[in-house]
């Protein structure tokens, strides 16, 4: 109702108890993460162990890295469906290029141009997505849907439907390496999570991301260059998709043209679970991190309980809707909603 002005003010952060409650209302996914964490700890023998937690972190890091980028694009009011295809493209390029004869004499340095090319492919495709959205005004959903199909096709053309194997074992060793007591891939995910959190919550670019997604017209009126701004965010998600392709291929020591299939759906699920709105303007990295962990813990826990894979999918689908319903109930503005 446009008439009924809502007088509820955000929960004030006074007193520890109240502050925690307010934090939970803003990030309901974390309450859920704690719940399933306790549930699986009690229900299975193997869940509650450091080794398993490391497992979960590494298993979700691929999804998580892309979700970081997806969050910023979705807060912007856009979406990127091409991330799964970019995962395959970047992985194939990287694994292939490091085997090129011209780098044969480079030793382990042959990995460097390959990694740079893989990451650059993601950034460039992101730039292309962003440029098309900016210049044509076609909805990001459609543009990136096209990119998803097209890029996947390119991957098949490029690879000739073949899987590539990393000839340099230093590459696959990286995927299994540890650093300061944690798997290196977990570090990569955690460090980028912190960086993206800072970018979104502390920088002008971050503030503008919210403004553009919240009210694009207002952002234009305020002099924000919305087109280039959105393009940068598409480049960021492209970078993360490519990075995820690399981390995945280091784990496998190989790339396949089908790598990253359905990833866009999992990433969007994790991001939305974390409180990011499809309409833009709302969301944050803390929530996304929670959403990623929730999916990781559920998959891992149900796996340990030996739930058949198809039931895992059914459970995740139900949980997605249930969590968003809960979120709507908790964050409802005023009691007076229109009857529909």
């Amino acid at each position: 109702m446009s008439q009924t002005s809502v007088e509820s003010t955000p929960v004030q952060a006074s007193g520890g108890m109240k502050a925690n409650l307010g934090w939970l209302v803003r990030h309901p996914i974390w309450a859920f993460v704690v719940m399933i964490f306790i549930f699986f700890s009690l229900m299975t023998d193997n869940f509650f162990s450091l080794g398993n937690f490391e497992n979960i972190l590494v298993q979700t890091s691929t999804l998580g890295l892309i979700a970081l980028g997806m969050t910023i694009v979705m807060i912007n009011g856009n979406i990127d469906l091409s991330v799964g295809a970019v995962v395959a493209l970047a992985a194939s390029l990287t694994v292939d290029i490091m085997g090129w004869p011209m780098f044969e004499s480079w030793g382990n340095w042959q990995i460097l141009p390959a990694v740079l090319a893989g990451l650059a492919s993601g950034v460039l495709l992101g730039a292309l997505n962003g440029l098309i959205v900016w210049k044509t005004g076609v909805d990001a959903f459609i543009v990136t849907l096209g990119a998803m199909l097209g890029v996947r096709g390119l991957v098949f053309v490029y690879t000739g439907e073949q899987s590539f194997f990393a000839l340099n074992f230093a590459y696959s060793d990286f995927g299994a390496s540890r650093f300061l007591g944690l798997p290196t891939l977990a570090w990569v995910f955690l460090i980028f999570t912190v960086l993206m959190h800072v970018l979104l919550s502390r920088t002008v670019h971050g503030s503008n991301t919210y403004a553009v997604g919240d009210n694009r017209e207002a952002a234009v009126n305020a002099g924000i260059r919305v087109g280039p701004h959105m393009m940068i965010n598409f480049m960021i998600v492209g970078f993360f998709a490519a990075l995820a392709g690399l981390t995945l291929s280091t784990q496998m020591g190989a790339s396949t043209p089908n790598l990253g299939r359905d990833y866009e759906l999992w990433v969007i699920t994790a991001t939305v679970l974390g409180g990011t709105k499809l309409t833009g303007g709302a969301g944050n990295i803390i929530g996304t991190f929670g959403g990623v962990l929730a999916i990781g813990i559920l998959r891992n826990g149900m796996n340990l309980m030996q739930v058949p894979a198809f039931y895992v999918l059914v459970t995740l689908g139900v949980i997605l809707i249930a969590v968003l319903f809960l979120d709507k109930q908790l964050n409802r503005k005023g009691g007076e909603e229109l009857r529909i």
């Binding site: 920088t203 403004a211 009210n215």
Partner: peptide, 24 residues
């Protein structure tokens, strides 16, 4: 022409937010 989910302060300086020397 306001971003409804942002604070008053952010809206007032939308497009011209003051920065620290670190760029934040």
């Amino acid at each position: 022409s306001l971003a409804e989910q942002m604070t008053v302060a952010e809206n007032v300086f939308l497009g011209e937010l003051p920065r620290t020397s670190w760029g934040f």
